[in-house]
């Protein structure tokens, strides 16, 4: 296990799930978890268990939907997919996130200058 794996930044897990589903289409829980870990280059200590409450929350908000399906390996899995409102929400959150990180980034540059 890499020594400096970070915890998932508060509030960003939902965004990661939404983005993953947008990029790869419908997926089940384990695949989503693996994908997030892979994208982060195994830099993220995702406590995989926290994924499920997060999925429930997103579903309650109406941003993703779920169905039970047969997976490629023949297992019965619950497959999550982005809904239309979820796609809209993702756009909004992406923008908000970039805006926020942009501001933080600018602060960091100022500090380097001084």
């Amino acid at each position: 296990m890499p020594p400096d794996r970070r915890d998932v930044l508060y509030g960003s897990l939902g965004l990661m799930i939404l983005k993953t589903l947008e990029a790869l289409g419908p997926l089940h829980g384990y695949r989503i978890a693996r994908r997030i870990e892979q994208i982060s280059g195994n830099q993220l200590a995702l406590n995989q268990g926290t994924l499920y409450p997060a999925l429930l929350k997103l579903e309650q908000a109406g941003w993703i939907g779920s169905t039970w399906r047969e997976s490629d390996s023949g297992r019965r899995v619950k497959v999550y997919a982005l809904t239309r409102t979820g796609r809209r929400q993702l756009r909004a959150e992406e923008a908000a996130w970039q805006h926020a990180t942009g501001i933080v980034a600018r602060f960091l540059t100022i500090q380097e200058e001084s």
Partner: peptide, 20 residues
Amino acid sequence: RLERELRQEIAGHLDEAAED
């Protein structure tokens, strides 16, 4: 029902992870 489904999901999750 939701809790039962979760248990199923977790079981599947663990099986799949273990296989990996």
